[in-house]
Design a protein around this nucleic acid. Structure first.
Length: 591
RNA sequence: GGUCCGGUAGUUCAGCUGGUUAGAACGCCUGCCUGUCACGCAGGAGGUCGCGAGUUCGAAUCUCGUCCGGAUCGCCA
């Protein structure tokens, strides 16, 4: 009998009773009772208890030397445990393997943290020893889920006749958007490739080529500051289709989501997903990615207080700002101290200047600025806020659109603090009707809200030059529980419209030719109408697995400084390497 | 770049109104133990209190600076 394993550590049950088996795995736990030693042998499939008995003196004394994380192979017989010693918590808990022979493949130093669930070790240490962290069940489950989701996605598109095409990782650096990661070209001195922020232009060119249904699971790179839900390299499910409109894309991807959720979480999603316009999202939820798992909405009470005696309200409205409220159900009895703490939190986290509250109790309304307000005004405010007896109304005032964003922040604080969020049912929605462009105070020009290839709505096209801010885009985001998990648009497919868009964005003809000439040219040879979407795979898996950080669903992630503590990248390179690349470092860097 | 939180044993943390030898749990090491599965019992090792300066008779504790990690704002077409 060889030392090749006959079973994994997760599969033996009473059915294999009496069989001679070979198991390989890691020593997870040793329970040494003296004459009897139990080892929990672990691999990624599970844990099986193996036993060393004193009656086999040679093997028993070998087992005394076993320590955590040693890698061993054992040969032995599957035996059933006596009734009292069955462990009902474990799949393999009815049996154990009585070891006859053992081989130590490799020893292990004491690991810097224990290989177990609910580990509290700080992330720096975990990232430094990522290969050990990944030995833990929690992370293995997430990566395995991720792998299965890939599979579902590929099946889904394959069944629908999509073609998976790999696009270049070394590509042209383009203006607009996020900072590029640059790659110097040795054979082209002074020239650089960029790593793709997304394969946007390539997938559009594939449409021109006639691959009318394309998808790719692809790494994308953005050199921006990191967050819990933002890594410098991340994975997109990139999709593009020809001869379609928004409806086709919505429908297909609702189906994809439903399939993923059903297959891997056993959850039936309600389709179609609700859709709300960007404007409604902002004015009702104060966010372009609203969390619909709780029902609190923003109310505009500007009209109610425009003529009130409270100067801040009046002057805000006079200056064109808004006075907004949200109602917190059942918190009307909240004490002054708690309200002050909430106010501090809100002002520091949202940037709101101050917060005003109104409490409805026993038919009476008390307000923090009540002495400036008529009873009647307060009644109207409460009514507009849809507040009932026992509720708390919170009010922010300020210039729009800032005050809406602050309100959106307040809404999330309320949702979390008062546990209003229903965590059981995932809430998807489409956000639609985004503005095409927004004014950048910094660059003194318009920026594409989505990207420069997004088509304006047809009925708005004639406003591109005269009133760009009013132009709506054929763009959409897919939002899940307050997270943006995808976004896309119907694209521009004529060189004329594309050129007008570049002009609007302050990219003159020459620059457009330099940066995007290939795309403009391609459009001159018969470009089909097309559109698509890119889904954030990491975020989707993160939300599916209940992780709070993208780092938990990426095998080897970067820390907040975009470094990998394990392999110490990025790192300095030899002068000779730089020389070959025709690069010299600035003094401020080398010092 | 801003704001906030944190950095004490291998790990997670306590200690922080300055004052004896800096503690606990888990882990680790040694011994005992034949039915454990968070094994138990007895004993033990293990610390640059992130780093530097200052205040002080005396600093883990107070002050300043700095480094590191995380959350977040800016940024992320």
């Amino acid at each position: 009998m060889s030392w090749l394993r006959t079973h994994t550590c997760g599969e033996l049950t009473i059915d294999e009773k009496g069989k001679d088996v070979v198991l390989n795995g890691w020593v997870s736990k040793r329970r040494d009772l003296g004459g009897l030693i139990f080892i929990d042998l672990r691999d990624r499939y599970g844990i099986t208890q193996i036993v060393f008995d004193e009656t086999n003196e040679k093997i028993h004394s070998l087992a005394e030397n076993l320590r955590s994380e040693y890698v061993i192979g054992v040969k032995g017989k599957v035996i059933n445990r006596s009734k009292e010693t069955i462990n009902p918590e474990m799949k393999t808990g009815e049996i154990e393997v009585e070891v006859a022979e053992m081989k130590i493949y490799s020893k292990s130093k004491t690991p810097p943290f224990e290989i177990k669930d609910n580990l509290k070790t700080n992330e720096e240490t975990r990232l430094k020893y990522r290969y050990l962290d990944l030995r833990r069940n929690e992370l293995q489950e997430k990566l395995i889920l991720r792998s299965k989701v890939y599979h579902t996605i590929r099946n889904f598109y394959n069944e629908r006749d999509f073609t998976e095409v790999e696009t270049p990782v070394l590509m042209k650096s383009t203006p607009e958007g996020a900072r590029d990661y640059l790659v110097p070209s040795r054979v082209n001195p002074g020239k650089f490739f960029a790593l793709p922020q997304s394969p946007q232009t390539y997938k559009q060119l594939l449409m021109v080529s006639g691959f009318d249904r394309y998808f790719q699971i692809v790494k994308c790179f953005r050199d921006e500051d990191l967050r819990a839900d933002r890594q410098p390299e991340f994975t997109q499910v990139d999709v593009e289709m020809s001869f379609v409109d928004e409806e086709v894309i919505y429908e297909e991807h609702e189906r994809l989501m439903a399939e993923i959720w059903k297959e891997h979480l056993g959850v039936e999603l309600n389709t179609p997903f609700p859709r709300i316009s960007y404007e409604e999202a902002m004015t009702t939820y104060g966010s372009d990615k609203p969390d619909l798992r709780f029902d609190v909405k923003i109310h505009d009470i500007s009209d109610d207080v425009a003529e009130s005696g409270f100067k801040i309200f009046k002057s805000t409205v006079d200056k064109g700002g808004r006075v907004l409220s949200i109602t917190v159900p059942g918190e009307g009895s909240m004490g002054r101290g708690a309200l002050d703490r909430l106010t501090d939190k809100v002002t520091s986290e949202t940037g709101a200047a101050g917060m005003i509250f109104m409490k409805l109790n026993d038919g009476e309304i008390t307000c923090s600025v009540g002495k400036f307000l008529e009873d009647e005004t307060m009644q109207t405010m409460a009514k507009t806020s849809e507040a009932e007896d026992g509720d708390l109304v919170l009010i922010l005032a300020g210039p729009a659109p800032d005050v809406y964003k602050q309100m959106g922040g307040l809404r999330l604080i309320i949702g979390n603090q008062f546990d209003l969020i229903d965590k059981d049912q995932p809430r998807f929605l489409w956000v639609t009707d985004f503005p095409l462009v927004e004014w950048s105070k910094e660059d003194l020009r318009y920026h594409a809200l989505h990207h420069p290839f997004t088509s304006p709505k047809e009925e708005d096209t004639d406003k591109l030059e005269s009133d760009p801010k009013a132009v709506k885009a054929r763009a959409y985001d897919l939002v899940l529980n307050g997270n943006e998990i995808g976004g896309g648009s119907i694209r521009i497919h004529t060189p004329e419209l594309q050129q007008r868009m570049f002009t609007l964005l302050g990219i003159d003809e020459q620059e457009a030719e330099e940066k995007f000439g290939f795309l403009l040219d391609a459009f001159k040879y018969g470009a089909p109408p097309h559109g698509g979407i890119a889904l954030g795979l990491d975020r989707i898996v993160m939300l599916m697995s209940g992780a709070t950080s993208l780092r938990d669903v990426i095998a080897f992630p970067k820390n907040q400084r975009a470094q990998s503590p394990m392999d110490n990248s990025p790192s300095e390179v030899d002068e000779s390497q730089l020389k070959e690349l025709h690069i010299s470092l600035r003094k401020t860097v080398t010092q």
